[in-house]
Amino acid sequence: MPEQLFQFLVTGITIGSLYALVGLGFALIYNASDVVNFAQGEFVMLGAMTAIALLNAGLPLLVAAVIATLLTVGVGLLLERFAIEPAAGASVVTTIIITIGAAIFLRGVALLLWGKDFHSLKPFSGDAPIQIGGATVLPQSLWVLGVTVVLVALVRAFFNRTLLGKALLACAFNRTAAQAVGINVKVMLRLAYGLSAGLGALAGILIAPITFSSYEAGVMLGLKGFSAAIVGGIGNPMGAVAGGVLLGVLEALGAGLVSSGYKDAIAFLFVLMVLFFEPTGLFGHKASERV
């Protein structure tokens, strides 16, 4: 039984890392613009599908991954420029619906480009399982964990160490004041969308060898990422990371111990409980009240 638990934990942390990256993307955009971007999951899907397509076209993995990430960043910037910017100052409901529209639109594009089939990516370094203390770990899981840790550390350093990162935080805290001290809020907004699109794409490329990808793959991932952000305290980037891992572990435990069919229900039930009893998240929320 303990080995089994450990196995669930490993699975949970792997999938949770993915939720963490998507949740981090949510938090970045929410901070910069007060918008919850329901197209976040589609960034993940676009990253995975583009990388698979480029790989199939004969490009080496690294090149395919870089191009796929850059293309997704481009999509994120276009989304900001042509869907979010024109609706500046709109109500919460309006922006939610705009980003839902964007998500459906991107799904539609993917459907036209790649059809309804499932696609998968070859694991980065083979698929011979590694035994760690009674649990079987796929090498790809280690890739997911490793890259996630590096990405999260980079984002953290970006906010804490660089002027640009601090400027972005300032925007999140008080947009008018940020503008007053000479920060170009528009540029910051684009930065946030580009950054979170890139994070999403990388998450997609990392997970593609483990789960199959299709034009619809982003829907549930996006929702889980949003859940991670809520559990962590919306607008709190590191909270979203912790929330994502927590959600992944809970889901894996639920799937293993209760029923795999109900794992999504368990995850959302947990999110509902958090919303009912601790709506500002389990890990504190950012200083400015945004509700």
């Binding site: 929410y30 919850v36 919460v92 859940s227 809520i230 069919g261 999504d264 229900a265 919303l275 509700v291």
Partner: peptide, 27 residues
Amino acid sequence: PILRLRGHYLAMATLGFGVIAHVVMVQ
């Protein structure tokens, strides 16, 4: 409990409710 929430929180809660209901229909 749900209508005390606003904006994005309400969106998330109703969304979660819908997903749970759908999972139950399937399972």
